[in-house]
Nucleic acid binder design. Sequence first.
DNA 1: GCAAATGATCGACGACATCGACCGCGCAAT
DNA 2: ATTGCGCGGTCGATGTCGTCGATCATTTGC
Lengths: 146, 146
Amino acid sequence: MIDDIDRAILELLAGNSRLSLKDLAARIQLSSPSTSERLKRLEERGIIRGYTIDADPRLLGHQLQAIVRIRPLPGRLPSVQKLIEATAEIVECDKVTGEDCFVARLFVRSMEHLDEVVDRIAEEATTNTAIVKGQLIKRRLPPITY
Amino acid sequence: MIDDIDRAILELLAGNSRLSLKDLAARIQLSSPSTSERLKRLEERGIIRGYTIDADPRLLGHQLQAIVRIRPLPGRLPSVQKLIEATAEIVECDKVTGEDCFVARLFVRSMEHLDEVVDRIAEEATTNTAIVKGQLIKRRLPPITY
DNA sequence: GCAAATGATCGACGACATCGACCGCGCAAT
DNA sequence: ATTGCGCGGTCGATGTCGTCGATCATTTGC
């Protein structure tokens, strides 16, 4: 279903999604038309959902990164959910099992800014904020098992 | 330093990093050479760190996603750190302040697989596992304040 | 074994990125 | 105020790249 060549394509594009078809083709030792065809199929099958960039948040004015666990107060779940969605500083948020209901990652300019955003959430939820000191592993593809 | 046109470029590429220069240029109402020049500068300045893909982990054989908080046992921090780095299932891991030392995101095939990976970590650390039930917000750019 | 389907290559054509030459605006210094 | 300079832009030519149709090889099923 997904073979070594597809895997190679995924890995190469994960490393640089702006690679030209020709470069891609050369690296996987295939002609460009067939590389193009495989790429199209990976997209059609939904395996590749999209192509995006990795931008440096610091250079965009966000000096601080935090992971906030959020447990809405009784009855406030829908309202908290709306608040999270409306908070632009939250760049990622998962609904999880366990004591906490949500885990959000947020980018802020400063401590004051962090405080401001978290305070808003804390009006309707119990929160737990952990400031990111460093990235041990930065976003990578999981091992491809199929 | 970074103007509306740069912002537009970042947003467009965040939405689809494989956009051709020509398309990009058309959307920001600029010629391709100047678009190319701006793109080059965004890269040189380190604002764009790279171009990557968004792949569907489920279609790559990872049915389950979890967020694991990890607190190494006394003296085991370096060893835990090495273990995390060597664990391919961990696709992202941050070093954070607070009770927990690390927060990791994990992709696994099954509950058994999850258990296996977490058990390995739990030999040297206190762990807290939250299974991801859904993504409320999936990775997006933070607001650009500069 | 043969037919058909799948997945590859080849070559030609059209689209695209890049480069050099040139232009115009804003700013600083005289 | 004017002149000179530099930044950031357009334009047009050239070479490279992607795409499409035709064709060929290899594997699968009968």
